[in-house]
Design a protein around this nucleic acid. Sequence first.
DNA 1: ACCTGAACACCGTTCAAGT
DNA 2: ACCTGAACACCGTTCAAGT
Lengths: 216, 216
Amino acid sequence: LDLGKVVDAALDLLDRAGPSGLSIRAVAGQLDVNPNAVYTYVPDRAALEREVTERVMAQADLGLLTGPPSAWRNRLLGYASALRTSLLRHPGAVHLFMTAPMDGPTARRVGEDLMGVLHDAGLTPEDATRATYLLIVHVLGAVALEVAETDGRPPLASEADRVAYRSSALAEIDPAYPRTAATAHVMARWISTDQFEWGLDRIIDGLSGSSGGEQV
Amino acid sequence: LDLGKVVDAALDLLDRAGPSGLSIRAVAGQLDVNPNAVYTYVPDRAALEREVTERVMAQADLGLLTGPPSAWRNRLLGYASALRTSLLRHPGAVHLFMTAPMDGPTARRVGEDLMGVLHDAGLTPEDATRATYLLIVHVLGAVALEVAETDGRPPLASEADRVAYRSSALAEIDPAYPRTAATAHVMARWISTDQFEWGLDRIIDGLSGSSGGEQV
DNA sequence: ACCTGAACACCGTTCAAGT
DNA sequence: ACCTGAACACCGTTCAAGT
């Protein structure tokens, strides 16, 4: 019994029962041990949650961030999409990212490597640092809002099914919201991969336009 | 005793004790009533949380979104900043926005009016709809991550104090992260108003550049 | 319709005691 | 160092009963 197995159990519970599946007592039960035995490996529940976020974040391939400077845009898009995919594989764990500050080694490495890509894009160190956080906010924010509309248990319903569900919910809209009614089919896709990538593209456009980075 | 008073009590508890202060039983206690009496006004805890998000979102002045078409950029910045400020006044309630899908009347009105501003900016209806969500993701994501580093009880420590705290936490960094070490003073400001507005500016740049909107 | 009273199946965390 | 056993002060939710 060690910290690794405690985190294994925690993530397993989240994957089987969704966000509410994680509790100190459930982890203890899974490990056939008394509830307070968990406190040998983790000071409190918040620390366990931080360990889970580290584990999930580490599942996105950091190698996608390295490559030729000219391909900086694809490196950014590739990693951001990979991180989103990793998060969507553990939807029950996603809300933990918005609750626990990310200060672990994986978060540090992601930040460091993102800054490297943005340096290759021609940004100043200060702009690269700010842009790094802007991108993190977009990925985590978009995935959190996407998952909030599910039960948080993997595998999630297909994107097409979730879009269709949103469509039906948006079907009859008060005429007091004419623009909403007219573009309900676009709003239905707010949780889609193409909305995610469209947003990422707009952000990257904004970054390269403002700092003399090359336009690709 | 009505739904309004139940939501009052819920928000009051969040403001006095932070995110963990909200429970059905605590609300009942505050109203001097048995726990199950709350279920007369709300089907379950999740519904109560949605009511709280509606209440908080309604505190940002929607009038900031209306104005002359030429001032579309300032209308966007003004409202986004006002919404952030409203959220920061109730930090204990912020995580509820990442957990409960926003489908209430206030969220609808915000979406509708945001689309109007983006129409004035020259975006197509489809782009305006997508841009609306991109902006919402940024505001909610940035505020959620900002609040995650506090105890969630208002009033929050001053921004300067919170930046200083982050600075000290980032003071000595492993040389394996050279870019992080070199720009720690910028990372310390990730939770600041100027980072928030910088990100918003980059997003708006990306929006106006991609769709023939006028550059301001 | 709206409340009380009581119960069920849970929580996180702490303390004292064992090995 | 790492576990057990027992307890404390909580949870959300449901059911039956009162008015």
